[in-house]
Write a protein that binds this DNA or RNA. Sequence first.
DNA 1: ATGAAATGTTACGTTTCATTACATATTTTT
DNA 2: AAAAATATGTAATGAAACGTAACATTTCAT
Lengths: 134, 134
Amino acid sequence: MNSQIRRSMPLFPIGIVMQLTDLSARQIRYYEEHGLVSPARTEGNRRLFSFNDVDRLLEIKDLIEQGVNLAGIKQIFASRQQQHFETTPSVSPKVVKQDLSEAELRKLLRTELMQAGRFNRASLRQGDIARFFH
Amino acid sequence: MNSQIRRSMPLFPIGIVMQLTDLSARQIRYYEEHGLVSPARTEGNRRLFSFNDVDRLLEIKDLIEQGVNLAGIKQIFASRQQQHFETTPSVSPKVVKQDLSEAELRKLLRTELMQAGRFNRASLRQGDIARFFH
DNA sequence: ATGAAATGTTACGTTTCATTACATATTTTT
DNA sequence: AAAAATATGTAATGAAACGTAACATTTCAT
């Protein structure tokens, strides 16, 4: 896949990227500062962006316009990465869907029920709660 | 799958949910106001949350703690939904991965090149750019 | 080679969002 | 009936995402 190489080739200085994306230089640098893009650098320390970088910036712009903040964008990108490795049974890198396990919930519920027999008897028939505990 | 029914059964008043999630009532209501949870209501207009609702709140809490704002959480939930319908070739409901197509990029690049022969000749050998246009 | 233009970095000010703090009305519990 | 819990609405607070300006350095054009 030669196109992948071409797409990641450092080409555009920030001025061009500003025009392509309609983002301010300040914004672009800010996004880099927060790890959302990582353009290459020339010897003189100028940024050089690839096609992929520009794509990424356009996605960022899109999400920003929908009100998503940088932390959210980071999460979204991270979770997208994982989709990619879904064949590899790796340890999910931090975005664990920390669900309340049934066991845990049952424990909490049971404690609650012990501690005070209150809480909406109205909406539950006698047996209903018990059914959660089998 | 009976458990799915049980998990979506309205059970907990907000006070219990506060304890289970360690969120303030105000926060929980705020999240509802922004469409992130939709607890049922009693006749007297009190909220009743299901297991699923509590799970959702815990996820919200988790993401908030990672700095994601409500808009971001909304996007994340939305994109999760879509994974689910991935068998159905439906029109993606708004979170289109609006990539710059190669064609489009080429057009922009060509225009740029026409308009002014400038922009980092230094980093490109003569033939490199031409290669993008085949 | 030299001045002009572009870009880099840094610092301060502004606006918006999530949260907290109150105040009041209504429902539920005892 | 009184007390406790919940609903709703209105400020006040603090941090994030920039705009903007100042100044240094790199690159471009003649």
